[in-house]
């Protein structure tokens, strides 16, 4: 009696917790799950994540279900006597074949997505991203545009002297601007130590390693501002080198390009003077 009531109660609590966690509102608010993102790759990554998550849930339910059922219904107090067999070739084949099929079932779609992620052919624009301690540099290779992107959160907010803004530690002076609907090739490298360029809404992150160039690509479908961070410990200001990607319609991007070129970009700024006053004056802080 007691046990069945306890089971019912905990079952109800579990179920309602599950429904609550499942509601998208709670997910968005608490950041429980990864974002679906704004590219076809990011959605594939999200779907893969959910597929594999539910496979894990199913395996967990089956394994723990059998375990708890056995513990409950085959306990000593019920007078159950343990089986006395040793080897079972049949069981061994079953528990080898089933996991193998599950693994293959996960590897096939995962590999398809990976192949797609690595296929950076036919990109219409190439941006080289260089990690520095502690800022990012964006180099539009065919456009002769090159600038640093530096944290713009005022130090007073970090020191708790001023109220924190909406995008605390996720805002920069010069964002990476890309056109929507165009395939953009992104080459990552670093100038000092290893960094990692990570924008969750794009569905991937890529290590930026000195002496190496890693290739990735993205095709953003929605205009908007997408924020990310350095994802490889790179020294004391590792938390202070955010990434802001601004995806704009083609026409606006052309305008931005022309504007940048007309500024007649001087030689790259020195590291001590990362922010470009000309660009900063042109637009508000993002």
């Amino acid at each position: 009696m007691g046990i069945s009531r306890f089971a019912k109660c905990s079952g109800t609590i579990l179920a309602s917790a599950f429904v609550w966690a499942w509601s998208t509102g709670a997910q968005a608010e608490l950041g429980l799950n990864m974002p679906r993102g704004v590219t076809s790759v990011s959605r594939e990554v999200y779907d893969l994540h959910m597929l594999i998550f539910w496979i894990c849930v199913a395996i967990g339910v089956v394994v723990f279900g059998v375990m708890f059922w056995s513990i409950f219904h085959h306990r000593k107090s019920l007078g159950v006597v343990p089986a006395q067999f040793h080897e079972s070739t049949f069981v061994e084949i079953v528990w080898t074949v089933i996991p193998m099929l599950i693994l293959i079932g996960m590897a096939v779609p995962a590999t398809k997505t990976l192949v797609k992620m690595y296929d950076a052919r036919d990109a219409e624009l190439t941006v080289k991203v260089t990690g520095y301690q502690w800022r990012w540099q964006y180099d539009y290779l065919d456009q002769e545009i090159k600038f640093f992107s530096v944290l713009s959160t005022p130090s007073a907010q970090i020191r708790n002297v001023a109220t924190k803004g909406e995008h605390y530690l996720l805002e920069v002076d010069n964002p990476l601007v890309v056109p929507v609907g165009k395939k953009v090739r992104i080459l990552t490298t670093a100038a000092d130590v290893i960094h990692s360029w990570w924008v969750p809404e794009l569905g991937w992150k890529k290590d930026a390693i000195p002496g190496f160039i890693n290739e990735s690509w993205t095709l953003i479908e929605q205009p908007g501002i997408y924020r990310g961070q350095c994802a490889e410990l790179c020294g004391k200001d590792h938390g202070y080198m955010p990434i802001v990607v601004k995806a704009v319609p083609e026409a606006e991007f052309k305008e931005w390009l022309a504007q940048m070129k007309s500024k007649n970009q001087p030689t790259p700024q020195t590291v001590t003077n990362g922010s470009n006053p000309q660009i900063a004056a042109g637009g508000k802080t993002l």
Partner: peptide
């Protein structure tokens, strides 16, 4: 909580 309270970033690392 966000912001620097107890230790500086270098000591944190």
């Amino acid at each position: 909580q966000p912001g620097l309270q107890v230790v500086n970033p270098q000591l944190f690392n």
